[in-house]
């Protein structure tokens, strides 16, 4: 079966150089940041794919490319077999667009403060000239707010309630895929639980597919069916949730799981990873993780490991077995 989303050899390079005059005076070359490098994965319908990584891992960039907010530098993203950036037929583009929605991290910035909540929610429909009668009220009730809230403005709501409004807007065009970019990292724990539970319920009710992007391992573990681990723009490991968390194969995944806080406070100082994420403008040669990897051998410093199949896992490591 064809997956709903398939990402093929995706690259995205940002030009982060200074203006040309500064470059000329300081005799510097263009600085290019490869935010996403050679990433391929698929998301089957009605599943949750969790993308986890630390800052600079490229997880948000991948999310933005999938929803069409950013263009890929090379490679492609196909949704239901359609590549939004190459498709010429406007009708098809519009149909696919209405199948994709996104929930953002900051519930304060993601709602227009000058619009009424009801208008915000139905914008995906009204902008296409669709019929919006009663839609906002129904959606508000589905996300646990009341129909009366439609006439209020965003500032009258708390962070958790705003995120519910964002979810209602995301549902308005009856999408198949929702890309969730750190949807709960700005929320308090008890509110996060409400929002995560709501998202789980809606997934079952509406038959949704999620791409769930987060830096928080525990949240990704709670939500996802399959998890992909990103490091410096590369997919280093991918596996079904339990396989990944119970038996991580890539040294980076192992390190991340080890460093994550445990409730029994069992992290020992000896286990704590050394070093930090290297500068993404000048990534290390060979395997990008080799400078921090406790097992690195000569080959790792020279040769970039391919993502290879290993049981349920896909791992980009020469040594994993």
């Amino acid at each position: 079966m064809r997956p709903l989303v398939s990402v093929n050899k995706l690259f995205r390079v940002f030009d982060v150089s200074k203006p040309w005059l500064n470059r000329l005076l300081e005799r510097r070359n263009k600085a290019l940041l490869t935010a996403v490098a050679d990433v391929s994965f698929g998301i089957p319908e009605r599943t949750v794919y969790g993308l986890v990584g630390e800052s600079g891992s490229g997880k948000s960039t991948i999310g933005k490319i999938i929803v069409g907010l950013l263009a890929p530098s090379s490679g492609s993203v196909e949704i239901e077999g359609v590549d939004l950036f190459r498709e010429k037929d406007e009708g098809t583009v519009d149909r696919i667009r209405s199948d994709i929605q996104m929930i953002f991290q900051d519930p304060y910035a993601s709602l227009n403060p000058r619009w009424k909540v009801g208008d915000i929610i139905v914008e995906p429909i009204s902008s296409r000239g669709g019929d919006t009668v009663g839609v906002a009220n129904k959606l508000l009730e589905q996300v646990g707010l009341s129909a009366r809230d439609a006439t209020k403005y965003p500032h009258e709501f708390s962070g958790g309630q705003r995120q519910r409004i964002c979810i209602a807007r995301a549902l308005a065009s009856e999408p198949k895929l929702i890309v969730c970019d750190e949807p709960t990292s700005a929320l308090d724990v008890s509110v996060q639980a409400q929002v995560l539970n709501l998202m789980s319920d809606l997934k079952d009710d509406f038959g949704l597919t999620y791409l769930f992007i987060s830096h928080d391992l525990t949240v990704v573990r709670h939500m996802s069916d399959t998890v992909g681990v990103l490091y410096l723009g590369r997919l280093v490991e991918e596996a079904p949730r339990d396989a990944l968390f119970d038996g991580p194969k890539h040294p980076y995944t192992q390190m991340l799981l080890q460093a994550a806080p445990k409730l029994d406070g069992s992290v020992r100082e000896a286990d704590i990873p050394k070093g930090e994420i290297p500068d993404p403008i000048n990534p290390p040669a060979g395997c990008v993780f080799n400078p921090r990897c406790p097992f690195a051998v000569d080959r790792c410093r020279k040769e970039l490991p391919e993502l290879r199949k290993l049981g349920d896992h896909r791992v980009a490591c020469h040594l994993a077995e």
Binding site: S98, I100, F104, A109, S110, S127
Partner: peptide, 17 residues
């Protein structure tokens, strides 16, 4: 750069709107 503008772009709103 605020996310509500990105949300509108995502829907396919034209720059003028």
């Amino acid at each position: 750069n605020k996310e509500y503008v990105q949300a509108a772009r995502l829907i396919g709103r034209k720059p003028g709107a």
